[in-house]
Design a protein around this nucleic acid. Structure first.
Length: 504
RNA sequence: GGUCCCAUCGUCUAGUGGCCCAGGACGCUGGAUUUUCAUUCCAGAAAUCGCGGGUUCGACUCCCGCUGGGACCGCCA
């Protein structure tokens, strides 16, 4: 099989780029690149009511952000989308257009052919009639399927409907048969076509429906493998029937297990973090962590390995190692992985990426004004970050004197009295030191603690708390080193005042 | 209701008849380092492999049934 591997994702722009779509895109990308194939994006925007171009942009931006550049797809330089990070992928392609709404004419001959060969027919039933029947069926516990009322209309009946100006849809004439296929992930799958009934393939406004346009486009675009969510499993059977009727190529299908919430329900737009841009990118997650994490949802490599870059995934990816059972999206593990990637990124990268998450204008300006100082602060906080969004809270103490309660200054096994003593002693000691360096700071303060019957912990906690105003922060000496003499002494003085006030 | 799919620690998963009274990771607990937090390191608890039958000398692994969960059944995709 020297056939070229060509895969696609076919999102419909009816919402923000969904994490499930992203995972599907990832697996398609990995599969294609592993085999030297092409990854294609086709926007299925035939549902005029629900489409919006802002979603097209969101989807394409998201793909590029994740690093999933595509070989063919819609243009993103124009109005419909803009590129973000990543090297610009080749866009457009010889099988365009890549917006389904621009391909409507392409479907016409196929529909005509189906009609002519009586493999499809016009149905004049109104939507109301059908809903009524469907609801009645469901109540009776019957499988809801089309009755076939318009299946064998006579010429005069058709004539009559047409003269009445009745709208019509086009239905595919489903023959009683079994549709069998070998799914790349689920192996042998079989459906009884009779259960589908004669499904609609063209709407009354002449726009082809998903199953039809999808299968025609896949054929026209020479798609070799279709990897998509499990919710499409039954569609595969319909599409195979359609493709056979149309005498066009049928791609290989592979249906990926779905991703669920912790409560085992499908992730929903309304309550769950599913938007790649809003819920992950904007919250300070790294694309590398997202990719790595998503890959492990349903796929696993060998040797218990957990950490993979995109290109390593391309290298290791095997469709055979994709599981069949649905997985739950565990945000805790994502957070861990995100933190891992932050810790392993360079200081420079963390600094510049995290900077985008500083919302306070003055703080942001301060980091911009003194980039070297900002870099130093990042060195101190980087290992504590789980997401970039935490940067602001982590570094603000380096820029403004903190607000806190006096109680904070007292170490766990210490007393307010000792805390005050510690601060006074520390201040005296620090005043003697000209330039704050770790080498000098540490022995001096420890010595000061010892000679005043204070434990290291009591003294260092008090000083650290005075400097940071937080129960958790970088270390005492690091803080002193970066805040420097004047600011440190000032904060310690404030702390001493607080303690005095506490007593009275 | 019908059809189809799925089923190993709380979660992501390894495991393709004996190496598994089940391995890794997240999370959790304890410890070490340490001035706090985080990092790092070490240790631990955590799955009678959904249940019941088979097949086999031997089953997490194969077969059947059951149960549970999910998806789909639109003039959405």
């Amino acid at each position: 099989m020297a056939e070229e591997i060509r895969v696609r994702i076919a999102p419909s722009p009816t919402g923000k780029f969904h994490i499930g779509t992203a995972r599907t895109a990832l697996f398609n990308y990995l599969f294609a690149k592993k085999h030297g194939g092409q990854f294609i994006v086709r926007i299925e925007d035939t549902d005029r009511e629900r489409n919006d171009d802002v979603y097209v942009k969101d989807i394409i931006d998201g793909l590029l952000w994740l690093g999933l550049g595509f070989d063919e797809g819609p243009p993103f330089h124009g109005v419909r989308a803009t590129p973000s990070k990543v090297e610009e992928p080749e866009v457009g392609g010889q099988f365009g257009p890549y917006f389904q709404s621009e391909r409507l004419d392409l479907y016409k001959p196929y529909v005509e052919q189906l009609l002519k060969e009586h493999l499809a027919y016009r149905c004049y039933c109104t939507a109301e009639e059908l809903t009524k029947v469907r609801e009645a069926d469901q109540k009776k516990g019957l499988a809801p399927k089309y009755s076939g009322r318009c299946r064998d209309l006579t010429a005069s009946e058709i004539d009559k409907f047409e003269r009445e100006g009745r709208a019509s849809v086009i239905r595919f004439r489903t023959e009683p048969r079994k549709v069998k296929f070998t799914d790349l992930i689920r192996d042998e799958v079989e459906f009884d076509a009779e259960l589908f009934g004669d499904f609609v393939i063209v709407r009354s406004d002449g726009v082809p429906l998903f199953n039809l346009s999808n299968v025609i486009d896949d054929s026209l675009m020479k798609i070799s493998h279709v990897l998509r969510g499990e919710e499409h499993l039954a569609n595969a059977a319909k599409q195979i029937m359609l493709a056979e009727a149309l005498r066009i190529a049928v791609p290989e299908f592979g249906h990926l297990p779905l991703i669920f919430n912790p409560d085992r329900t499908k992730m929903s737009k309304r309550r769950d973090p599913v938007s790649v841009s809003d819920d992950f990118r904007a919250r300070g997650y790294l694309p590398e962590a997202m990719v790595n994490f998503m890959a492990l949802l349903g796929w696993s490599g060998e040797n218990d390995r957990e950490i993979y870059t995109l290109s390593e995934l391309v290298e290791e990816f095997e469709l055979e190692r994709v599981g069949k059972s649905p997985s739950i999206f565990d945000i805790e593990k994502l957070k861990w992985m995100n933190g891992y990637y932050i810790r392993n990124a360079s200081i420079g990268e963390v600094a510049s990426e995290a900077q985008n998450f500083i919302t306070d204008k003055k703080l942001l300006q301060a980091t911009l004004d003194k980039p070297d100082f900002y870099l130093e602060t990042v060195v101190l906080v980087r290992d504590r970050l789980k997401t970039y969004a935490e940067i602001e809270e982590a570094i603000e103490l380096f820029y403004t004197a903190p607000k806190y309660d006096a109680e904070l200054l007292v170490a766990k096994k210490s007393t307010a009295k000792n805390a005050q003593l510690a601060l006074v002693v520390a201040a005296q000691t620090l005043k003697q030191i000209e330039t704050f360096s770790l080498d000098e700071l540490e022995p001096s303060l420890r010595g000061a603690a010892a000679s005043n019957q204070l434990t290291d912990g009591e003294l260092l906690w008090a000083v650290r708390a005075a400097l940071s105003g937080k129960a958790a922060s970088p270390g005492c000496f690091e803080l002193l080193g970066i805040l420097n003499k004047d600011e440190s002494l000032k904060r310690i003085a404030t702390a001493i005042k607080k303690l005095k006030a506490l007593k009275s």
